[in-house]
Nucleic acid binder design. Sequence first.
DNA 1: CTTGACAGGTTCTTTTTTGGAACCCATTGT
DNA 2: ACAATGGGTTCCAAAAAAGAACCTGTCAAG
Lengths: 162, 162
Amino acid sequence: MRWEELDREPCSLARTLSIVGDRWTLLVLRECFLRVRRFEEFEQRLGIARHVLADRLKKLTEAGVLCKKPYQERPRREEYRLTEKGLDLYPVMLSLLDWGDKWMAGPEGPPLLRRHNACGHVAHAVPTCSECGEPLDARSMTVEPGPGAPPAILKAAGGETE
Amino acid sequence: MRWEELDREPCSLARTLSIVGDRWTLLVLRECFLRVRRFEEFEQRLGIARHVLADRLKKLTEAGVLCKKPYQERPRREEYRLTEKGLDLYPVMLSLLDWGDKWMAGPEGPPLLRRHNACGHVAHAVPTCSECGEPLDARSMTVEPGPGAPPAILKAAGGETE
DNA sequence: CTTGACAGGTTCTTTTTTGGAACCCATTGT
DNA sequence: ACAATGGGTTCCAAAAAAGAACCTGTCAAG
């Protein structure tokens, strides 16, 4: 399988990875969630090669995850902001962060914590069922074909569940 | 920043990406969650080059995400299984899948659905606060330095929150 | 006791992607 | 007129990926 074919796979995971499954893209998005918006600032904070950054920003913009907004005319300057689609990646960020906090932190503990404004506690995310509210884990779900399933999907492409 | 330095970054996102932030790795893990365990089966289902597959399985095993278990001696054959650490990536899989279902499905809808065994409904994951149970979104959390924070972290490395 | 068929890799060669640094362009401050 | 600033593009060398062929134990059949 080649990288450009990934977005045509009958698998939501593969399709998502066709947008964010790249070394740099998620780090760029991390900065976006930290309200970084300008080319130079991305470059300085990430230490990314300029043309790689330009490429990622273009792809994310084309994918509708970011949008360009002018913040001044003459000279025209534009900044990159998360769209609705981009903000919707927050659960992905959270789950990656929480896993890193749990499994990749050294003996000192995680470098950053997140405090939930509403309740005031340092918290992590618990994935829960949208229908009944119970916590979800790998063994509690069953995969079945959806409306966009190709005929051969039952044996071929995947979703998840252990 | 170079790829091998990523696991030493003071950022849980970067550290997580040092394990799973790769084109193929998450697709290999998708198959693991679908109970695929053998080299040949990974290869056939993914269409991945054999040495890339061997490399990813080795790295995931070294990282403690997968473990090798012999399922027969003479000839010795081993299968790859998710460890506790690997199973803990389920929230990451779910959030990626849900985003793909929502934003990358064609007009027909998503190719696969997940049904929650406990309540019987087709469901997606909602990230909720581990302390108070309320749903979390990008604007409801504040980042603060944790126990493993290096001195310069307040301005340098990131977590999230829009 | 030779042939062949697995499972599970490794080696080799050709493309793609990176990283690094230099260069370009419009505007504006001095 | 001249350097600085923001936002890129171009060029080259180095690293990683794709593809396909080749290697290695261990049975099992002829």
